[in-house]
Write a protein that binds this DNA or RNA. Structure first.
Lengths: 170, 170
DNA sequence: TATGAAATTGAAAGTCATTCGCAACTAGTT
DNA sequence: AACTAGTTGCGAATGACTTTCAATTTCATA
């Protein structure tokens, strides 16, 4: 079981702005943003680069609004339609995963990480990521039992986190 | 593992209209709609009675729009605000469960049945209900592991149903 | 069974996240 | 540099609810 906790701070940390310069000698640890855009068959525009930077370097879970605000802080010329459009494209091509729940805005996350599900605190909205192969296996089993070929799933657990339990029990 | 399949027919079957008369001798198999409304601390109005009948006797899964259409076919005077309002109240008091997914309208179902999750065909939208205690138990375990007290969960599996698999594989 | 305060209703207006239409604007090929 | 198809920002549109409010109805009490 792996996990990663995350605070609920409202703004995204400012990611480093520059793409690695061609001439630097620093190691290229990951796929460059330009390559991602080209691989999608899209033109490389400044807005898409900025959105990608924010998405990849900001906090793990974000809404389109989060991205829009961070992006416009850097370049006020970018409209939210562009943010929504590009996030949709990214999610259609599995670069980000999109979770839409309730009447709330969709939450996204960069998907280049291992699959996981979420445990959300219904009091403070803190999100804990977890991964449980056993549950995954059982899901496959259920699908098979009904003759379905499983293509995806949504598993979100809701509860009260340790901090909030402590606060509410004096 | 239990299950119940359901067709995707677009309209709700017309439920019998009358409340059991006081004088009939027929067995009272379930909580009367009037009692439900009173238990909620609400006034018994005709619109709430009609909505309850439709919800309890129509098909298992429905949207607010489904209910609104069936209800207005019976009594055109009922507005959709009333339907939405009452469905929300019912769901707040756990008489119906509400699942909101994607940008789609919320789906409801009468909750007086045993807990279950859903396996949905992403091609034809057929819904299969299933219940898997082992998965439930693992969810509790995950929550405990992170110190959360589990209050609820959402588990939806997506796949392609046997019918659709057959059709797509010639 | 009258009465009236409080709850409820329908219609219309308001929200809110997201999407669309389109003229102006670019990236990237030629 | 010119061309052209892909992109963009803006504002308007959409769709699913939600709220507002004046008119109506319920139901405890007289």
């Amino acid at each position: 079981m792996t996990f990663k906790e995350e605070s609920t701070a409202s703004s995204l940390p400012a990611p480093a702005h520059q793409e690695p310069l061609v001439r630097t000698t620093q190691r290229q640890e990951r796929v460059p943003n330009k390559k991602i855009i080209r691989d999608l068959g899209l033109k490389v525009t400044n807005q898409r680069l900025v959105i990608l930077e924010v998405v990849r370097e900001g906090k793990a879970h974000f809404t389109a609004q989060d991205v829009f605000e961070t992006v416009t802080a850097r370049n006020p010329e970018i409209g939210f339609a562009t943010v929504y459009r590009f996030l949709r494209t990214l999610s259609e091509h599995s670069y980000v995963t999109e979770v839409r729940m309730g009447g709330m805005p969709a939450r996204y996350e960069w998907a280049a990480k291992k699959h996981h599900d979420h445990l959300t605190c219904s009091t403070c909205s803190k999100i804990v990521e977890f991964e449980n192969p056993e549950i995954e296996r059982l899901q496959e089993k259920v699908a098979k039992e009904f003759g379905f070929s499983l293509t995806g799933h949504l598993l979100e657990l809701y509860g009260v986190c340790p901090d909030c339990r402590r606060k509410s029990a004096p």
